[in-house]
Amino acid sequence: MPPKVDREKCDGCKAEKESLCEQICPGDLMTLAEDKKAYCRMPRDCWDCMSCIKACPKGALETRIPYQLGYHVAKLIPMMGTNTITWTCIDINGKVERFQYINRGMLD
């Protein structure tokens, strides 16, 4: 279940030798097509760990549940802050929920 790539937003991480999704994917699955847009070379092999989604500086990647497993369409969008992460989850009925918490540093 590969990440869906928003080809408008993806700029192939121009400044990098390798795009960040290509650098980070634990399965060596993300890479750039000839037009310098990200794609998943083996869609069946994605683990849905969302490492690439978190790494994408453009918010161009989105994990989707395949239709065989879940209905159209739910979204889960992580936003990485300094020592925090914020997730926005939208279910198939349009219900929006937000989760925000510390992901680095000591808790009281």
């Binding site: 994990t63 879940g70 997730w87």
Partner: peptide
């Protein structure tokens, strides 16, 4: 995290 997405789906 994708399991939370699965529940939403």
């Amino acid at each position: 995290p994708s399991f939370v997405l699965f529940l939403a789906s």
